[in-house]
Design a protein around this nucleic acid. Structure first.
Lengths: 346, 346
DNA sequence: CTGAAAGCGCTTACAG
DNA sequence: CTGAAAGCGCTTACAG
């Protein structure tokens, strides 16, 4: 491999100091009052040698890497890969790049990722936190390390957060089902103590109560994250094969739950929306693709990604300028929209 | 923000030199023959101060960042986010992290991304190259910069590549349609000169010829990448609304093309597989989700990701050991499997 | 207008 | 057994 050309090579070739080259290449020739002609010659030689600055060296010197670390549950989940794409674009507009990692909803992996990214000197983190990671994040907060949570949050942690109004979203979904005449509404959620998921469950229960609907037996079921496929299969078996007490509709708390659930519904030749009304959280192209396009709760991954980067950039700026005062934490709650398609009747 | 603790802080606290600390923390105490007791004290203090090595500094010194740059067309496309996930895991096993970028099939963006990643000193690149980027890649090759192409390749470029046998895959798909009795087979592909896409088209044409089937009027249509939605809508209109000359089956060259195409098919209430047989390239959860699960060509993103990392790691190792000889380029062609579901009849 | 020097945090060949 | 020193490539306050 060709040796990379450094500032020194340019300096040597022109018989000037490295400092001069650096000033010119950073457009600080005025500050250093470099001669115009010399500036031109430096620029010309840089181009000629195809000089690419070593950003690692610059980072070591500046203490800034212009890099964001992104930690999600799983980058291959469309919800997260859509957010990742938006974050990439927004970061790029600010001259930042993104390093990513998947935690698999696992607190240990999360800690390992955080450590790795910090050792790599990322300037800040955007995290969709896994269960039981609140202590890890508290440590970041205590150290004043900039980060923004997305999608999830913790009650015992004050942190920058961008998320939807989960309670309201569930409530809206149940209201919609109720208005379309469904009365035996079941919910399939994740078994987790993460508050965003609890909120979705509470919104479901709150709406049932408002409409005077009893919670059905097995009306609120929970799947693990690790064995989602078999867990949901079992849940759907319990609910669907008990014909005399079958739900007439389902609220799924995530896209993965819905996809697994609908596979079971299809297997049993149950027809949406005639036999079952369906609403799910999270957009995914699969939903439009169903024979009866699903009504879903749109989290607006675009908005989440944009706002997360915006808030992180603010934090980084304020840190650069103002080393004493700490910025207020930003808690942004986005209003999730119910996108009505055809899975709850016309 | 708390000041980060460095090797010097540990050294100072114990009244030893930074060198000593470095040796111990890198488990090179034997080489430096450090006292056992001192080694213990150093380790203890490091833990106590929660020392995290600055990998940027190490990289500057070593000339290695242990970072892979990943360039795909769009990280939010499930085909690429699945590959990204595999690459993340494989990289992690080798103590590498991944920086990613999306080229949007645009040669300029691709060049910008390559430059950015190289300035950030990634050790190597894994690239799903966009059209017209062969010259950019040739420059990398000329400089001896390690990279591996995935999914796509170029005829005028000798480079490490991991891809499927596109011609064969298309051929197999058409054969399957033929065997199921379809005779009026149309293909929807991308308008691009990228050879992997040309191969898919050639495989289609080759199989038609083998079975003595004429190429239908408008039997091989091409969509742009930028306006896929409106382009495919137009294509499907041309093909489907010409009722007396309608195809009886479709081969879609990618998941995105299939998804857009099937939306149009659904709109017209055409039923798969009765009215139309369907096969698509690329797995995506949406396919299983269709009322009639799609028969598709599985590219095995898992395999592609793993092999790409393996080959890149080999290149990096050989580069470290052996500065003179260049390694042979690896050209891995994976046999794509036709996954038969129900979209071509039983 | 220009250069010499220090320093970011680390590693490692060298000298004792 | 241990330390001093150089150097990775860059930036910038300082001195002329």
């Amino acid at each position: 491999m060709e040796k990379k050309v450094s500032i020194k090579d340019i300096a040597k070739k022109l018989g000037v100091s490295a400092a001069l080259v650096s000033y010119v290449l950073n457009n600080k020739e005025k500050e250093a009052r470099v001669g115009l002609e010399m500036a031109e010659r430096i620029r010309h030689t840089a181009r000629e040698l195809n000089y690419q600055p070593n950003l690692i060296a610059r980072s070591l010197r500046s203490g800034r890497t212009k890099t964001i670390g992104l930690i999600v549950a799983d980058i291959s989940n469309p919800f997260f890969s859509n957010i990742a794409r938006t974050i990439e674009d927004e970061a790029s507009l600010n001259n930042y790049t993104v390093i990513f990692g998947s935690s698999d909803e696992n607190a240990e992996k999360s800690q390992t990722l955080i450590n790795t990214l910090i050792k790599r000197q990322v300037d800040g983190l955007i995290i969709a936190p896994a269960e039981n990671t609140s202590p890890q994040l508290q440590v970041l907060s205590d150290r004043g390390f900039p980060y923004v949570l997305i999608d999830r949050y913790f009650n015992d942690l004050t942190a920058n957060t961008v998320r939807i109004n989960n309670y309201q979203a569930s409530f809206k979904a149940v209201t919609h089902l109720y208005e379309r005449g469904y009365r035996r509404i079941a919910m399939v959620a994740y078994k987790t103590k993460l508050p965003h998921m609890e909120d979705r469950k509470r919104g479901f229960l709150g709406a049932l109560q408002k409409f005077g609907l009893p919670v059905m037996e097995n009306g609120l079921m929970e799947s693990s994250y690790e064995n989602i496929s078999s867990d949901v299969a079992g849940i759907m078996q319990t609910l669907l094969d008990n014909t005399e007490n079958r739900p007439d509709s389902f609220l799924f708390a995530t896209n993965s739950l819905a996809i697994n659930g609908l596979k079971e519904i299809n297997k049993r030749k149950l027809v949406v929306p005639k036999d079952l009304g369906i609403i799910s959280f999270d957009e995914t192209e699969a939903f439009d693709f169903f024979y009866c396009p699903l009504t879903y709760i749109n989290q607006s991954t675009d908005r989440i990604g944009k706002e997360a980067v915006r808030i992180l950039m603010q934090q980084l700026e304020s840190k650069d300028k103002n080393k004493t005062e700490k910025m207020d934490t930003a808690q942004l709650v986005i209003d999730a929209q119910l996108v009505v398609q055809r899975s709850c009747g016309e």
